[in-house]
Amino acid sequence: MHNPQLNSNGELIHLLSIEGLPRGILTHILDTAASFLGITDREVKKVPLLRGKSVFNLFFENSTRTRTTFEIAAKRLSADVLNLDITRSSTAKGETLLDTIDNLCSMHADMFVVRHASSGAPYLIADHLKRVGRDDIHVVNAGDGRHAHPTQGLLDMYTIRHFKKNFENLRVAIVGDILHSRVARSDIHALTTLGVPEVRAIGPQTLLPTDLGRMGVQVYHDMNEGLRDCDVVIMLRLQNERMNGALLPSAGEYFKHYGLTPAKLALAKPDAIVMHPGPMNRGVEIDSAVADGPQAVILDQVTFGIAVRMAVMSILAGN
């Protein structure tokens, strides 16, 4: 099947999902990000790659942090950035998604960064742009429903490669609400594509999808067992709204079984790193002693995230 993210030369024109992207493209993004990292140490923290281009941040779902990192990334590439708070404007007045897109095309957008509560919304936009002959506009998925969050997946891979040097001999555990997590899905596809031999999913039955085995992931319900000898521990945010449903008894109960404490972390390798996509719920999925401890690389993830988003935007803009 044709991958809508690639042009006829196999080059990346949209970033919608990590699923289906070849290893070479992922590696190219990570390598390029390494070059962008040094820019923040300079007197002028900008490069002229996207000078004269307009990047539109379309956040149909709130996320200050992700929007901010995309905005910084675009500005460091010298692009003009427009933040549209769609939830409070046109959509609220009843405009359809594609009408909004058509309007923005007429404002000479060069790139859309899209966050949407519905899985597949960025695909719909990319498909629409092709149909109306505007596939010169690039689409970056900044998180769609439960489906994918590819730049988070890539920055997680950058972080792992930075601290562990390669992917070939790693044991990586993803802990928490994997069922509702687009981050987990993107991480699993990226880890598999980059050749990580062992990916583990740890969580209660009610928060794990049923197709993990098919994705090559080993399932654990006991955290003490799952963390044993891991090199990388990726904690997921427990969304509060899950607590209201019948999925979990209470935050305290969850922390007792699946919260990362120093004692549980001691079961992983001594040099294991702890990651979290943020924002963290201290005392729910992670103990403060771990979040602020020497093995946490959570703030490094944020810094790397900007460089990775710069790499994605500049590669897309050049193809």
Partner: peptide
């Protein structure tokens, strides 16, 4: 487009 092999300055 972007050079396939960018090295850090």
């Amino acid at each position: 487009g972007l050079h396939p092999q960018v090295r850090p300055t």
